[in-house]
Design a protein around this nucleic acid. Structure first.
Length: 304
RNA sequence: GGCGGGAUAGCUCAGUUGGUAGAGCAGAGGCCUGAAAAGCCUUGUGUCCCCAGUUCAAGUCUGGGUCUUGCCA
């Protein structure tokens, strides 16, 4: 397994520009670890690197699926591993805000086969008819270990536990127990942080800029292409809140405020997630010293 | 000017036949094994607009006022 540099941080903290800077200096490739930048035609509110930036540095796992398709942590882990270990890209720098994708790539997920969507759809239908209590009781009967860990309201995890069991005839908790210890990859895992208020402020301003840059037109053209509020891509923060304005003439200012609010909520969850992860380097945005980051990068690359 | 709504947590609002209040969202904290920009958990003392009255007891009834909103003029 080849070594990788990783840059993580809450949304709007400046990960991408740092990654771009480092990648240019050291001739690296960037692998995006972002659950929304994978979507084509969704550029502005995903804060995707611009075409110009992508021309400067080779970016991977951006624009790989259509807005009506789904993506997940397992796919990311597999595709990122393939890129890093089985292709001849430049030394890789993985940069993105989807922490779960990065930990899936680093630590691996348990070995559950791909499960056909039809099983999940059937379970969701059953949920709608029979309700959460009924579905939760199924989990309790099938897999008490998992049931113990999740809430009776946690639709996603209840359905996940059930689909794994019905599709593979094996309990989710059995997969957990079978999961062996993954060999560890050499990583330089960097976290960028900032004051909460500063992050929130930057989120608000950045969203205004996105709207000014033509976000509404971008969404309108997605709708013209046939995508709608049910398309997985359009459930992204920054998009879903503007749909009521475009489709039903809701108040634009309200929609914009809601989008900002959801972005702030998202940043908060990211920050909580990072607390339990280990990093080799933690930088505060204000006090980033590029020269010192460069030294760490140089030493890391030279060692491998 | 006339008639009618409304005034309760930062915001939107519930409050049953009078017994000093509760949801959602926000905020704060946390969780997270293929939906993760998702999903979930914990956390609610506020002159119940003001004044007077009835009552053992009023957010809840009565009178007056203030503000607000809709319709008619």
């Amino acid at each position: 397994m080849k070594p990788v540099i990783i840059i993580q941080g809450p949304t709007a903290v400046g990960k991408s520009s740092l990654a771009l800077d480092i990648a240019q200096k050291f001739k690296l490739d960037i692998i995006s670890a972002d659950s929304r930048q994978v979507y084509k035609y969704m550029d502005l509110a995903t804060a995707k690197p611009t075409k110009e930036e992508q021309a400067l540095v080779k970016h991977h796992l951006i624009d790989i699926i259509n807005p009506d398709e789904t993506y997940n942590a397992g796919l990311f882990a597999r595709q990122a591993s393939h890129l890093v270990d089985e292709t001849d890209l430049n030394f890789p720098i993985i940069c993105g805000g989807t922490g779960f994708y990065i930990s899936s790539f680093l630590e691996g997920l348990c070995k559950i086969p791909e499960i056909d969507d039809s099983i999940r759809h059937a379970l969701i239908q059953e949920w709608e008819i029979k309700g959460n209590e009924y579905m939760y009781k199924q989990v309790q009967a099938i897999d008490p270990i998992v049931a113990e860990k999740i809430s009776a309201n946690d639709k996603q995890r209840i359905i996940r536990a059930l689909e794994v069991f019905y599709a593979t005839k094996k309990k989710l908790s059995t997969y957990w127990q079978e999961q062996g210890f993954m060999q560890t990859r050499k990583v330089l895992n960097i976290l960028i942080l900032d004051e909460r208020e500063a992050i929130y402020d930057r989120i608000n301003k950045r969203y205004d800029t996105m709207v000014k840059s033509g976000l509404l037109d971008e969404i309108k053209s997605l709708i013209e292409m046939g995508y709608n509020e049910k398309s997985p891509g359009l459930t992204a923060v920054g998009y879903k809140e503007l749909l009521p304005y475009i489709l039903h003439k809701s108040d634009l200012a309200d929609c914009i405020n809601l989008a900002k609010q959801h972005s702030r909520n998202y940043a908060k969850r990211q920050l909580t997630w990072y607390k339990r992860n280990n990093f080799n380097l933690v930088f505060y945005r204000k006090s980033i010293k590029y020269s010192s980051i460069d030294n760490f990068i140089k030493r890391f690359i030279d060692n491998y």
